[in-house]
Design a binder for these strands. Structure first.
Lengths: 344, 344
DNA sequence: GGACTGTGGGAAAACTCTTTCCCAGGCTAG
DNA sequence: CTAGCCTGGGAAAGAGTTTTCCCACAGTCC
């Protein structure tokens, strides 16, 4: 039952032309085809409702119009914002976006990358910081290289250190700048809601914050550091733990907005006033979370543009050679969730 | 330069077996292959790192492992929640998800559906209520039918009335139930932040709310209805407009949480206390927005499950015949953003 | 006028897989 | 002992494009 499909051969026949000529017209090849025949072919294609079989094209060209997009969790607004940027670019280019969600599993990541390879995807955009686990990292590098060897291009967002183009926020500087703002407000004792230690993004933000404190001669005490998993609930629980342990901090820095949201919820539940009793700051400036009350002090990242830029880098065909790195600076936004330290 | 790829023929040669036999082993066809040869082929495939060319398979089988997912905006948490459910199912099934974002443009929708058709996608999940515009609706129906005729399956979320399986929230009942709760709280004068009138979801929620009011003998006055576009900023602006016009309502129902968020922001800016001066309710129970303060009264929809269910329906091969409709009931969640009406 | 150039167009190979058809050889049954 | 059957395995025919190679023909130059 191949009846339902119109093939190029049928178009050619209908136009009274050879298959090759029809293909040349449709693809606008370098070879000239007379105006007369061109029009005839196009008219026939239109009339018959011709739609090229993408798999046949891929097979013949050894390259498809698919672009992979790997995120950890599409429901996380951090990733969905970036995804929006990526799709904006790919769709503008007439390409098809393949969405793969990994939930931070190297296993799933491999599976999806293999599928993209099997489909001869043109490019893939990897989003989200990598585990620093040596072994799985090495495996990812091998897979990326296999992909590239097949003519695919790779770009990463927030995932430095891979053999590919990279768009990376300057987490260190952003966190440090935020710290300086908070110090300027008068804070001296900080608590930090850090992320998973094996993720570079989490580490960089922690380090940046820490180094700014050190530079100001301030300590970040060990009992004032708790770790979350970048989720809202993780932030909630870690904050509760922090409260239970009894912190003396006047300001809490959560290394991403999503955890900061959980932190604010935990504080509200404990009846701790933000910012009167405790200032809270986040990182990312997630659009969906801009309406929290009090409005969250944070470091804005242009997430959507980052995704768009990464897609663009992955698909720019003219570029060869060295991997490029685009560094994105965050902008500190002091809003309502931070204030002068309480004098308790 | 076909050098980089390992073909099945190479595997067959390496195993000292014919191409057909190798294919039978790899695909586990009905035809038996002796244990000895089976093992040999598998070993060769493993050793050579064989990865089947997906486009060749698609071409030969006339069906790919691609599943389309069409949403209006992936950064909108409503859609990203549903997308999560869809990908959960497709990835579990070893399928590849193609993400298309339409931004409510029938044009883009067509483009993406055509691409999916060209790729011989196995199924497509359409998310988000349709415009009621007759013409573009008819076009969509034609495209869906073309897709189905090629052996593709279609399922919709929140998009009733199409010739496909559908998962649909019972917007009417949900809104009506919410209205009854609000009436029970003592409210008599309502304002409503409605959605685009041409979207069925928006209309159903408006109608449901309205009919519950009518049933209680209450009027919904014309000047108390404003329309937004389902976005946060739309909700913000419409609420400002409502305020400027001077409403006498004691309760504002925004037909989705995202607009409700904008409404709360506008009210906060105007210094209007929620819920003391004005109660606010939304619809959807968007996970990311659960931490708004005051916590938003809303109607919970199991968005993720809805997506999962739709994907499942689209991919269940055993089902033939009548289109099925799954109705999802929302659950009214009375939280902090609503209270007894102020007595002004 | 013949050789040469350039241009339009067609035949066919290539891309990699699936699947049908057929054959050879070992059984069983009569 | 032979006819018929079953089973494993191979050859080959697609599936729908792209692209290379070649041919025919018209025009140009000596």
């Amino acid at each position: 039952m191949s009846s339902s499909y119109v093939t190029l051969e049928q178009v050619a026949q209908h136009a009274g032309v050879s298959l090759a000529t029809a293909s040349r017209v449709i693809n606008g090849s370098t070879r000239q085809v007379s105006q007369r025949l061109s029009e005839k072919v196009n008219a026939s294609a239109e009339e018959l409702g011709y739609l090229a079989n993408a798999s046949a094209q891929t097979l013949a060209r050894n390259s498809s119009s698919l672009v992979g997009l790997l995120v950890h969790d599409i429901a996380d607004p951090y990733f969905s914002s970036i995804a929006r940027g990526v799709t904006r670019y790919t769709e503008e280019q007439g390409l098809v976006t393949v969405l793969g969600t990994t939930y931070r599993s190297a296993q799933k990541e491999s599976t999806i990358l293999a599928a993209l390879r099997a489909h001869r995807a043109k490019a893939v955009v990897l989003v989200g910081s990598r585990s620093t686990d040596e072994e799985s990292n090495a495996r990812l590098v091998r897979e990326i290289e296999a992909f590239q060897q097949q003519g695919g291009r790779v770009a990463c967002v927030s995932q430095p250190g891979l053999p590919a183009d990279t768009v990376s926020p300057d987490n260190h500087t952003g966190a440090a700048e935020l710290a300086r703002h908070l110090i300027a407000l008068g804070h001296r004792r900080f608590a930090i809601l850090a992320g998973p230690t094996n993720l570079s993004t989490a580490r960089e933000r922690l380090d940046g914050f820490h180094s700014a404190l050190s530079a100001a001669g301030l300590e970040l005490e060990h009992h004032n550091i708790v770790h979350g998993d970048f989720t809202r609930d993780g932030g909630f629980e870690s904050t509760q733990r922090l409260m239970r342990l009894g912190t003396d901090a006047t300001c809490l820095f959560a290394v991403n907005d999503v955890m900061a949201t959980g932190a604010m919820a935990a504080l509200r539940e404990s009846g701790i006033g933000v910012p009167e009793e405790l200032s809270v700051a986040g990182f990312d400036d997630i659009p969906t979370l801009r309406d929290l009350a009090p409005a969250l002090t944070t470091v804005r990242l242009p997430l959507e543009q980052m995704g768009e830029r990464a897609a663009q880098m992955a698909l720019e065909s003219d570029h060869e050679g060295e991997d490029r790195t685009v560094n994105v600076q965050g902008e500190v936004l002091m809003r309502e969730s931070t204030g002068k330290p309480s004098t308790r």
